[in-house]
Simulated assay, not measured.
Amino acid sequence: MGKWSCSLAFALALWAVVGCAQAAGTRADVRKQVEASMLLQGTLDIDEAGGVTGYQLKQADALPKAMLDFVDRRIRMWRFEPVQVDGKIVRARAPMLLRLVAQRADENYLLRIAGASFGNVEKEDESARPRGKLRPPEYPGAANAAGVGGTVYVVARIGPDGVVQDAVAEQVNLRAVGTVREMEMYRAMLADSALAAARRWRFDYPTRGEDAQLPFLSVRVPVEFVHWHQGQEEPGKWYAYVPGPRQRAPWLSQDSEWADGDALAAGGVYPVGKGPKLLTPLGDS
């Protein structure tokens, strides 16, 4: 975790997004949990031994050099389980998503890489894919009227027939502030609506590869509820939110299959357990 005496530009950007969240309520106990987050997209190059040989970030210009150096040091310390394709260990280039989080601490900001996800390096027909466009959920009226937006991180279990057998809201992050009870109510409201939609989704099961023989597969889908006065989350921009508690889908293992489930871009469908497996911590610990 890095400590920063931020530049004026970054400080203004951070307080601008935090201020948007505080406008929805002034509950001091919840307000302390507000985080400013930025999602970064890129690719990661991994050698046969699992070391990082290079990477690219599409939104590098959105960060000052000191923060880029912070991210660079941590990425280059990562080690992965060697990537295998068709039973052979290979060099690989994988899609990468990073979630940076900044929190104010006195006169400084604490910056950390709070999550990372690494995409599939195999062919498309070796993983589950949506059957057409996934139908979005209904925006709960009470949440909409109260100006409450947020993101529900759904993990869905898919059977060989493409039907969603089960779905769980792993985390619900809200872009609003209220009492603890109000936050619990709105999280449940958004989660229920997202899960109702998820159970109606349909997928095409893989036709080749090891996954084609499995009894079920899992995908993650971030579902955004965007109120009219808020913008949809875009990579390379800071957004303020209150992170919700996390829960694990009962069918997932307790390793990287459920870690870092919020380092995902809206509008995507992400196969669980398909990308390179990170063996080292994201940050300093």
Rank of each mutant, 00 (worst) to 15 (best):
C6T: 13
V180Q: 15
Y270F: 13
N173F: 03
W258T: 00
P160Y: 02
A145K: 12
A194K: 02
V148S: 01
L217C: 05
A167Y: 13
A146L: 15
G141K: 08
A143D: 12
L174P: 12
R246W: 11
R199N: 07
R157T: 10
P276T: 08
E81T: 13
F10L: 12
P64N: 04
W15I: 06
L111Q: 02
L97S: 06
M67P: 01
L110K: 08
P64M: 06
F225W: 03
S256Y: 15
P140R: 06
A188I: 12
R135Y: 05
D262K: 07
D260Y: 05
Y139D: 09
R73C: 02
E224K: 00
A156Y: 08
A265Q: 01
E124F: 05
L252K: 06
P137N: 09
V272A: 04
Q56M: 07
M1H: 12
V154F: 07
Y205D: 10
D262G: 01
G159E: 14
L44A: 03
A156H: 09
V30F: 01
V83Q: 10
G54Q: 03
R131C: 05
V168C: 14
R181C: 00
A191I: 11
G51W: 04
D125V: 00
M38V: 11
P160D: 02
H227Y: 03
R248P: 03
L264I: 08
V85A: 08
D72I: 12
K123T: 13
Q213F: 15
A146I: 13
R208M: 04
K58A: 10
D204Q: 11
V155E: 09
E182M: 03
T280I: 11
F225N: 00
A128V: 15
P245D: 11
Q171N: 10
V17I: 05
Q84M: 04
A156S: 15
G25R: 02
W228P: 02
T151H: 04
G275D: 06
C6S: 12
T151C: 04
S218C: 15
D192C: 01
G244D: 10
V180K: 14
K32Y: 03
K274T: 12
T207S: 14
S117T: 14
E81C: 01
D255F: 12
G178W: 11
V148W: 09
V272M: 09
W78Q: 06
L190R: 02
L8H: 11
A191V: 09
G115Q: 13
C20G: 11
G236W: 09
W201S: 04
H229A: 06
L111W: 13
I46K: 10
A240S: 08
G50W: 04
A128F: 04
A21L: 10
R31F: 00
W258K: 00
I113V: 15
V163S: 13
L190S: 01
W4E: 05
V172D: 05
L278F: 05
Q247Y: 03
K133G: 06
V71K: 02
Q230E: 14
K123L: 08
P243A: 09
A114F: 00
R112V: 14
N120F: 02
G162Q: 10
L39Q: 01
L190F: 11
A198V: 07
D260R: 00
N120T: 05
I46Q: 08
G236C: 06
K65D: 13
G178V: 08
E107L: 15
E257W: 15
